[in-house]
Simulated scan of single mutants.
Amino acid sequence: MHVQLAGALAPVLADVTATGAPVPRVVDDGWSADPGTATAMLSSGDGRHGAGVSVPLGRPRPEQVSHVAGMVQDWVVDELRGTTATNWPPCPHHPTTHPLEVVVRDGAARWSCPRDGTPVAVVGTLR
């Protein structure tokens, strides 16, 4: 897997693992022919569904982490659909209404409340 994609995925997957969400299997398959993008596939353990994940190469790391976090978040929500709450990661301020969103602020990718913009955690530090 391309080093920039692996680096952007690592903190996001740490959050997935730390919160007990389903962890995707990551397959380096290079599905994009764009030389400015590194790609892989996320899939469930049972092969139920998969989704592509990509990162624009050469962008600042916080932007790459934010970009990847959105795609992983979509995969986790799809994986949870029909089984449990799908607001991953849940907003601690509004846990039953919406998930956190990723924003780049103060030089880092951060999980933040989409309703009031309150930063909750740097991506990779959820517990």
Results as ranks from 00 to 15, higher is better:
Thr96Leu: 13
Pro22Gly: 02
Ala6Leu: 08
Gly45Trp: 04
Trp75Lys: 00
Val77Asp: 04
His49Glu: 11
Val65Asp: 01
Glu101Leu: 13
His94Asp: 15
Val68Gln: 03
Val26Arg: 00
Pro11Tyr: 01
Thr125Ala: 12
His67Asn: 14
Thr37Leu: 10
Ala33Asp: 14
Asp106Leu: 13
Val123Glu: 00
Thr37Trp: 01
Cys91Ala: 06
Asn87Ser: 14
Val53Lys: 03
Gly45Asp: 15
Asp106Thr: 10
Arg48Ser: 12
Thr19Asp: 05
Thr84Val: 15
Leu57Phe: 03
Arg105Ser: 14
Thr37Phe: 00
Gly7His: 03
Thr37Asn: 00
Arg48Asn: 06
Ala109Gly: 07
His93Trp: 07
Gly70Gln: 07
Gly58Val: 15
Val26Gly: 00
Ala38Val: 07
Asp106Ala: 15
Gln73Asp: 13
Asp106Gln: 14
Thr86Trp: 06
Thr19Arg: 15
Trp111Thr: 03
Ser43Lys: 09
Ser54Val: 01
Asp74Tyr: 04
Arg127Cys: 07
Val55Ile: 05
Pro95Trp: 10
Ala8Asp: 04
Pro11Glu: 04
Leu57Asn: 09
Asp116Arg: 12
Ala33Arg: 14
Pro114Trp: 07
Ser44Lys: 03
Asp29Lys: 06
Asp116Pro: 05
Arg81Met: 04
Leu5Val: 09
Val12Cys: 02
Val76Ile: 10
Gly52Glu: 08
Asp78Trp: 00
Ala38Thr: 02
